[in-house]
Amino acid sequence: MIQTLRKPDRIVQPCGFCGGCGHGVIQRLIAECLEELGISDRAINCVDIACCFWTLDGMDLDGIAGPHGRLPAVATGIKKTRPDDIVYIHAGDGASYTIGIAETVHICLRDVPVTMIVVNNGVFGMTGGQMSLGTTLLGQATTSTPRGRNESSNGSPGDFLQALSQFDFEFAARGALYSVKEINRTKQLIKKGFQNQMEKKGFSLIEVLSACPTNWHLSPVAANKRVEEVVAAQFPLRVYKDRGGMSDG
C-alpha cells in the first residue's frame, strides 16, 4: 500500500519549539490520532503553562489554557459539562508531577474519562531548565543544580507513573521518542488513550520521555541517545496499567 505521509491538516502553524524538541513530534502524533479516529471536530485541547502552550496556536482545535499544574481540574470540569467531547490534557512533567501533583492524583481517583499526555523531559524547560524535583535524575546538571543533582541536598527522583498506577483508573503507559520504532509505539499508546475516551471508559495517562536539547546543553541527536541509554533505564517504557487488558509490554 502506497500511502502519502503529510503533516495533519489540523496543524496550522510552523512549530515554535526549539530544534530537536520532542513536543513537535507529540503534537503531530496527537493530531494524527485525532484525524485517524475522526474526532478532531469535537476535541478540546487543554494545555498547561509551559512549552506545550505553543500547541494552542499551532493546532486548529478548540483549546483552553488553565493555571499552571491545574489542567486536570480544568479538564474534569469540561468533561463533566460536555461529556460527548473528547478532552485531552497536554502538560509537562513539572506541571503534572511537581506543582500539580494534587490535581493529577485527584483526576486518577475520580477516574474521569479524559486523556492526559505528560511530556517528561526531566527539567522545567520553559523557565530555563531548572531541576524538577520529581523527574530530574541524580547527577544531572540543571540551571538550579549546576554541579549535578545531589541526593543529600536535593532528594531523589521517583517513578510517578508507577506510583499513580496503583489507583483505580483505566490506562497508564510510558512511551519515548528516541527512535522511529518508539515514536510509532508512542502513537499507539496515545491512540489507545483516545479510544478509551471514545468508549467512555476511565482516565488514561500516557507519559512520553522527551529530550530537551536546549536545557540539557546537548545536540538533539546526543539528547535522544541520553533518553535511550540513561532516562529510559530509570523510567522503564511499558504499560503500567490497563483495565481493558492491553498486554504489559
Binding site: R6, F17, V25
Partner: peptide, 16 residues
Amino acid sequence: CGSCYTTCPDYVYEVR
C-alpha cells in the same frame, strides 16, 4: 520509508 517524516519535529517532510 518515511523515517524522516516520523522523526522530524518540525514537519519538514512530505513523503509521496
